[in-house]
Nucleic acid binder design. Structure first.
Lengths: 211, 211
DNA sequence: CCGGAGTATACTGTATACAGAATACAGTTC
DNA sequence: GAACTGTATTCTGTATACAGTATACTCCGG
């Protein structure tokens, strides 16, 4: 079965990648006509992609003034962080006991993450994959999709932070302590540690943005 | 200050209202060209509105086959219900103590809700307003916006249910018990009752859809 | 040398046009 | 009479065109 994806979805991915890679830095305007020319498509699917990104918080849309990459605000990161912490905890609660092979896979990702030095994009990707893997057993499809979508905001913040601060030590020790609780199937403790993990991350990013 | 709203937003509201009112029943296809002609605008802003509705779950978008109003599935209601229960609880936790005048306003809405007989749309609107009012003190703007957006799914289900079942007794007694806990500023109990409220609602709707 | 008004340019928001795919229907064959 | 195939029509997805508005630049006055 071959899959035909609408242009808007491919463009969506492409623009997201551009923002993630640091081209299109915060504050820069995104002109649909320019983007269309750059990607070799027309404005219509580009605008559809940009409108979606705007609704998801990765872009800003001012009436009559088009789209721009929003500047990083500690507030925004805090708000999204609170939401994601709650939703990921919920997803964990709704999941059945995490099977051993998945716990193994999670440890493996952490190892790879710890071994990385300097590759910002790969680091954040691995962190995201860790969370996705952890919650992959949650039967609430809609919830999983929402979490994946919301992640693009922290993703943006983390990439900017790591790139700027040079610090590529994503807190794998937090991950480890969460896994430890899960290995005992102690969901309550795991949830608490999850919350703690998020709050620490928010604080760290907030302090950095405040400069 | 006059507000110029993009057409796509006005159309968004309009189509949403059409679905809510029961025109465009579940399963019916929504053709952008027809809708555009009906509203006296072009296809472009219509498609932008429909794409947004599709991303929010109020419409379905099949590649190459356009848009349609999804049929009601107990699964979907359960999934959204779990998410909304968690998010509204979070919003309540993040809120400062509910001031007396807001508690009064909430009681007033409940009274109005109890007095209604048969007006489905008004009932659901009031129920939504009750929740919006309750959480209006939450400082997490993003969270509030998300909750409002997510509500369109339960809204659709509740309207269909009430219209079909004829039963217009939206559980105001649950509301009352939640308010009672809040009056004592007992957030934990209020949260628990909130969860209970949602779960009962989900069960009720689920049982009805299963027929 | 600085500030403001006017014009020119560029860009957004919306409308229309076009191409390819999906569906429905009819004709033909078994 | 039923099933399949070819064709016509409709509709989606994408491209292009147009109009109104915001921005930038220049020219003039102070």
């Amino acid at each position: 079965m071959i899959s035909r994806q609408p242009l808007r979805d491919q463009i969506y991915q492409e623009v997201l990648a551009l923002i993630y890679r640091g081209e299109l830095p915060p504050g820069s305007r995104v002109r649909d006509t320019t983007m269309a020319a750059q990607l070799g498509v027309s404005r219509t699917p580009v605008r559809e992609a940009l409108l979606r990104l705007a609704r998801e918080g990765t872009l800003e849309a001012d009436m009559g003034r088009g789209f721009s990459v929003p500047v990083l605000r500690p507030e925004e990161m805090r708000e999204i962080g609170q939401i994601l912490a709650a939703l990921e905890c919920l997803a964990l609660e709704l999941s059945a006991e995490i099977p051993a092979d998945r716990l193994l896979r999670l440890r493996e990702i952490d190892r790879e993450l710890a071994a990385l030095r300097g590759d910002v994009d790969r680091s954040v990707e691995l962190d995201e994959e860790w969370h996705r893997t952890l919650l992959s057993g949650c039967p609430n499809t809609r919830l999983r999709a929402m979490i994946t979508n919301l992640w693009q905001v922290p993703s943006r913040y983390m990439r900017a932070y790591l790139r700027d601060a040079g610090r590529v030590t994503l807190s794998t020790q937090h991950h480890a302590s969460i896994l430890e609780a899960l290995r005992r199937n102690d969901r309550v403790t795991a949830g608490e540690r999850f919350q703690h993990h998020w709050h620490r991350g928010i604080e760290e990013l907030g302090a950095w943005i405040a400069r």
